[in-house]
Amino acid sequence: MPEIAISTQKLSRRFGNLTAVDGIDLKVAAGQFFGFLGPNGAGKSTTIKVLTGLLAPTSGSVELLGMDFAAHPIEVKRQIGVVPEGMGLLERLTGSEYLQFVGRMYGLDRATTQRRAAELLDFMQLADRPKTLIADYSHGMQKKLALAAAVIHGPRILFLDEPFEGVDALAAGALKALLGRMTERGTTIFLTSHVLEIVERLCSHVSIIHKGKLVAQGSLEELRTGISRETGSKTTLEEIFLSIVGQDGTERPHLEELSWLM
């Protein structure tokens, strides 16, 4: 039985009358590259926020690396890295200053922080503008910096909310390679993305959330087999996603209404 990195039991989160996350039970094994999918407003970002301590659950529990988050928040946070929705950057610092701030907040010593910050800035191709404030970075540059900040302390679990959004193909390729290497070394990566091709290429296991509930979970092969059995043909992740999420047809746009465009 593999070690479980992320585990939730009947995890729910409500905002007034709206139930954003509705009793989900997640199990992610250590070292997995895990894709968390869902349409807009399905509850992906809320789930990541609850898993990383940015939101408190309304009910249920979260265990990361066998530790209850609510009971040991500081110990758990030491082991995880997060690229949250909106990135959470301190925009009045330069890239280097921000990484050094984050490294020191995670308790790294000064020399290690400086060395890692410089190496990460080099890797992310952000080192050539040492005096530029983050406020003046492009969206893609900010995303890369947020990724650098999430890994500076060598986390055992990495939560990435839309990590490749706005990142150029060159940098995205290098990042994917880096993330692949991290999973080989045992880091668990929990990723949400709207780009299903990326998830299909990177992730070994996938969960799909729809209207706050988990509607599918398993390895890509398991999901493919399930759908292929129904349709009788080899399926892509996009087809799996559409067949699960768009089952009731409410999400499918009605093209005939836009006949004036065609």
Binding site: R110, A118, D122, D136
Partner: peptide, 29 residues
């Protein structure tokens, strides 16, 4: 005025500041 990265720019050499930390009496955080 948004900055854009220049991939062809020369990479900087990773430097570590050896000067004593004036805030060493405080915790890192």
């Amino acid at each position: 005025e948004t900055a854009a990265p220049s991939p062809l720019a020369a990479r900087t050499v990773s430097k570590v500041d050896d000067a004593p930390d004036p805030l060493s009496a405080l915790s890192p955080q």
